[in-house]
Design a binder for these strands. Structure first.
Lengths: 208, 208
DNA sequence: GTCTATAGCCAGATAGAC
DNA sequence: GTCTATCTGGCTATAGAC
C-alpha cells in the first residue's frame, strides 16, 4: 500500500513549467497576456496548451488557484507572553507575502477578471482572504477568552487588524507607487500596527 | 470683466456624455471596453472620439483623472468635542465614496493599466490616495499638538486609520464579494474603526 | 466636425500531419 | 500528444465623403 501515483496537476513538472510561464508574464506584462506568449515562454505550442487546459480561462484559473494557497498562518494558542510576538510575526509574514511580485500580479489579474467571471473570482477571494480572516478571528477569540484582549466581535477585530497591517501598502503596489519593500521597513510597520492594535484592544482590567 | 468661457473639457456636455459612457461600460463590462462600445453608448462615431481624444489611452486617462477628485475631506480644526464625530463623519464619507460603483470600476481599470502605463497610474494614485493621506495626517497632527491624541508620526497614523476604515471591504468589492453596501452597515463599521483608533491613540494623560 | 467604410493587426481557437 | 499552419472575429486607428 504505497502512495498512489496521485496525478495532481500541480505536481506534474510540465504543468509547473506552464504555470511559471504564466506567472512570469503576469509579473512583467500585467493582465494582458496571450496564449502565444505563454506557449513561447513555456517552450511548447499553443495547441498543447489547449489540449491540456481547454481554454485560456481554465488555464488562468488553475494558476490563480495555486497562488491562492500562499497565506500567513498563526500557530499555537495565545498567552500573555506570546500574544504580541506572535501577532508581530504574523504581521511581518503577511506583509512579506503580499510584497512578492507574484502576489501583486495575481491580484491585478484576478481584479481584471472580476466582472467577467464573478463566481470564480468570488470563490478565490473566499478561500484566500476569507480563510485568512477566519483563522485570525479564531486566534483572537482565544485571546479574548483568556482575558488577553478586550471582548469584542472577533471577526470584526480580525478585519480591523488586517486593515491595519496592510495599510495602504498593497494599494501602493497595485498602483506602481513606491512601497515598503525591505524586511526592515515591513517589520517597522508591522510592529507599529500590532502595537496600535494591542492598545486599542487591551482588556479593561489591564488598567488596574 | 465677466467670467471667460473657460473651455474646460469637463464642462463640455459632449465630453461629459462620453465620460459617462465610459464609466457605464466600465461598471458593466469591467476593464475590457472597446471604442466601438464607447461610441455606440455615447451616440457618436468612433472617428469623433479619435478626433477629440487622439487615442483610447488618452480618453481613459481623462476620465480617470476626473474620477480621482472624488475624495472625502475633513473640515475645521479638531478640538475635544469634535474629534470623534468629525473622524466618524470622515470615515462614513470615505466608505460611502468607496462603495460607489464608479469608484470600484475606476479602481479595476487603473489597476489593469498599471503595468503598461506606470507613470500615469502612479500620478493618479499620488493625487488621489496620497493627497487624502496627507490631508488626514495634517488634521491628525493638529489634534496631536492640542493634546487630543498621543504624539506619533501623523503620516503613519493617517495610513493606519485609513487601513482601519477600509478594512477588507474595498477588496471585497474588487473581488465581487458581498460587502457593506448600506449606510447603516458602513456607519457601524466606521464607528468601530474610529473608536478603536481613538483608543489606540488616546493621549497618555487621559488615563489620569 | 461628423459620419460610413475599411485597412491592418492581434489574439483565441482549430485542423491536420507526424 | 505535440507540432506547424490557418481560420475567424474583434479591435485600434485611419481614409475620405459630406
Amino acid at each position: 500500500m504505497q502512495t498512489p501515483p496521485l496525478p495532481r496537476p500541480s505536481d506534474n513538472p510540465r504543468h509547473q513549467q506552464v504555470h511559471e510561464a504564466v506567472r512570469a508574464l503576469v509579473r512583467e506584462q500585467g493582465v494582458q497576456i496571450s496564449m502565444d506568449a505563454v506557449a513561447a515562454r513555456a517552450g511548447c505550442s499553443k495547441q498543447t496548451l489547449y489540449a491540456r487546459y481547454g481554454s485560456k480561462q481554465a488555464l488562468l484559473l488553475q494558476v490563480l488557484s495555486d497562488d491562492g494557497n500562499n497565506r500567513a498562518t498563526l500557530a499555537g494558542t495565545p498567552d500573555a507572553a506570546t500574544l504580541r510576538p506572535r501577532l508581530a510575526a504574523f504581521a511581518r509574514d503577511h506583509l512579506a507575502r503580499l510584497s512578492q511580485p507574484d502576489t501583486i500580479g495575481t491580484a491585478r489579474l484576478v481584479t481584471a477578471q472580476a466582472t467577467q467571471f464573478p463566481d470564480e473570482v468570488r470563490a478565490l477571494f473566499d478561500t484566500c482572504v476569507g480563510g485568512l480572516q477566519e483563522r485570525l478571528a479564531h486566534w483572537l477569540q482565544q485571546a479574548m477568552r483568556r482575558g488577553l484582549l478586550r471582548h469584542d466581535d472577533p471577526h470584526f477585530a480580525a478585519e480591523l487588524l488586517l486593515g491595519m497591517i496592510v495599510g495602504l501598502d498593497f494599494d501602493r503596489q497595485r498602483f506602481m507607487f513606491p512601497h515598503r519593500d525591505t524586511a526592515a521597513q515591513q517589520a517597522d510597520w508591522a510592529d507599529f500596527a500590532v502595537d496600535s492594535f494591542l492598545r486599542a484592544f487591551a482588556p479593561p482590567a489591564s488598567r488596574a
